[in-house]
Design a protein around this nucleic acid. Structure first.
Lengths: 207, 207, 207, 207
DNA sequence: TCCTAAGCGAGACGGTACGTCCAGTCTTCGT
DNA sequence: ACGAAGACTGGACGTACCGTCTCGCTTAGGA
């Protein structure tokens, strides 16, 4: 709070307007021409801003987008309706929505490429939407374990990967739509994998 | 069916040497400078080839890489050692190796971005390594169902996604290494999800 | 004359058709796109001929054009109507016509550039249209001297330059049309310069 | 009239250094490799300048050269030593020098070709060296007429062509050196053509 | 009637330069 | 001191031709 104005603040302060205009232009252009045809030059022109003004704030195009997209992540209220299945499904619907939204889905492939290039971008994305969702799902799974709906030995991180991985893979590699029906099938399979042993103890010994 | 030579083939034929040199240079440069610093100009120089010779064969940098990487895909002998678990594990070790190989793993993020841009690239990649592995795994799973090791109602495509998705997601999104231990955990969870349940006690006699 | 057929001439003879097609295409393309946008590739395409067929015959684009244009030079009958003025005027009208003809005038600037680059081209052009006209004018001037219409000391080569130079300069440097009226004025001035001294002996002593 | 700074001039101003370096490199390279082997790429490299910096200033290679050469044109002091012959000779020596100078003569053929292609280049060249010389000669001739050294009816433009044309033609078409001796012969002939004739015996009193 | 040699259209080859675009930096003036 | 404007060097883009080099195919004369 005391950060600003500790120093008497000389010169013209940074324009909030410019900041917002840049993020807006970045989002708009990404939608229009795609992540790869996006250029700092283009964003600057569209935002009515000098290129240097962008470079002053972000070291790379990827971080501009990372912030622009990050601004879209709302706080996710962690559901607690009594059953893992229901709570997980509620959170997964948010993820499904992200894949379906033309404003966020198509950004994903570019972000993945940017993450591979830059650890800074990678961290931004990992702790952004991805981290928020994982945190929420983690809590829900933990409650499930506590309630006995999942095995006590459940590897939670693995479970998160089994929930999130197939959607991510289907979208980016297979190029197929991520529907609610598909997401539900993934949830069923993933939770089944960690369901308490007793219920199907003899699955193998039966052989 | 006589695919080649339907047309009499006029003019000087394309050089096999140049073709190979280009793919080789592409692989080498990708290892050295990374996918993003890769340029057609650089590949041409390294291969000792004119730029036009590259453009004559491939419409985009991505397709050059797609073919170069695709050339690495060997025919996968579909294992048949009597158990789903063993056969799946054998195939998954190949995938794990791909993520670990510095010649192929780091290409992935770029290819994903390229796929999003170009349907041609997308198809090339999908039917390349990815398709080959899915085909092999599909056969193995089918045999597992036939043997009663998996439920008769198993959604094979979903199972494939549960096997492949977590690795893909872990590598690209989480930026974590894909170890054999992790892969085995994924295999166990995924197969467990589709293992015959106790309620259907007599998995074989029920048939 | 014995030049050809000293060696028995083996293999397929060169095609007269191709030869003519090339020259024709060269002329046509020069008219359409201009001398500078002219390319061997373009000529070959237009003539329906392989590039090598052109290179087999001419070492450079300039020589193709030189031959194509040279083929347009007819034998000039040297006029002899009794007066230098009349005979010179008749020949100069041919030159004027060359500047006016859209098939030859616009070639000139390109040929001038080509001459500067290649002595072979230079010789071809100098001994072509230019040489033919100079030869004819030379004879006419010589007869004029013999008849006493021009000074006995007349430097004929200089006189030829005074006749040809202004037109060449006006066309290429000033970019102005070379009209008959202009040509006549040049003829008058040039011949006046070499008219017998007696008629104006006192021009300076009169002062 | 205040040509510059009508508009407040925003952004970084163009570098005078770069400008000069480009023109210098153009001249140097022309001398070294010739007009035809000259390339924008080469000039940029030599000048230590980006290609765009050249394209920002000139639309074509020819105009670069035109300006570089034009920069060599000094103001010509119009001589006034009392006689047309002397004044004309003094100016013509400058022209002769231009043809002889290895830095300007060999450029001529390329400029002529460039003029034919581009009216912009044509105007630049015409109003450059050529225009300056013609203006000076025009004044000298006018004074000669006023003094009675030339006929009152002299067509000055024609006279200029008779002076300049033969040298231009001899250099470009005949490929012969333009010597002082030759130039003097041209001057004599051209002035002789417009010298007052004996028939108008009293050139002055007749006025 | 074959054989040898050269010419043919076609088009790929290694190169060079084109003119454009953008990256990331720098320099000016105005706020 | 910041902002916009825009010039700066640098380098890759994809295209067009250069002049050369295979291809498979005529088209001739001589064996």
């Amino acid at each position: 709070m005391a950060r600003r104005r500790e120093v008497p603040a000389r010169g013209r302060p940074r324009s909030e307007e410019a900041h917002a205009a840049i993020l807006g232009a970045a989002i708009a252009l990404t939608r229009e021409v795609g992540y790869d045809a996006l250029s700092i030059e283009g964003i600057a022109d569209r935002a009515g801003v000098g290129k240097a003004t962008i470079y002053r704030r972000w070291p790379s195009k990827e971080l501009v987008i990372a912030e622009a997209v990050g601004g879209m992540v709302q706080r996710i209220p962690v559901p607690d309706a009594g059953s893992v299945r229901g709570d997980v499904a509620q959170l997964m619907r948010v993820i499904t929505g992200m894949y379906r939204d033309p404003a966020s889905g198509p950004l994903l492939s570019g972000l993945v490429a940017a993450m591979a290039r830059s650890e800074v971008v990678a961290e931004a994305v990992r702790s952004g939407f991805n981290g928020v969702m994982r945190d929420a799902l983690r809590q829900v799974l933990r409650r499930g374990i506590a309630r006995g709906e999942l095995q006590r030995t459940t590897d939670i991180e693995l479970a998160l990967d089994l929930l999130a991985g197939p959607l991510f893979y289907r979208y980016l590699m297979l190029g197929l739509p991520v529907t609610d029906r598909y997401t539900n099938a993934v949830i069923d399979a993933a939770l089944h994998a960690f369901a308490p042993v007793t219920r199907k103890r003899n699955a193998f010994t039966d052989r």
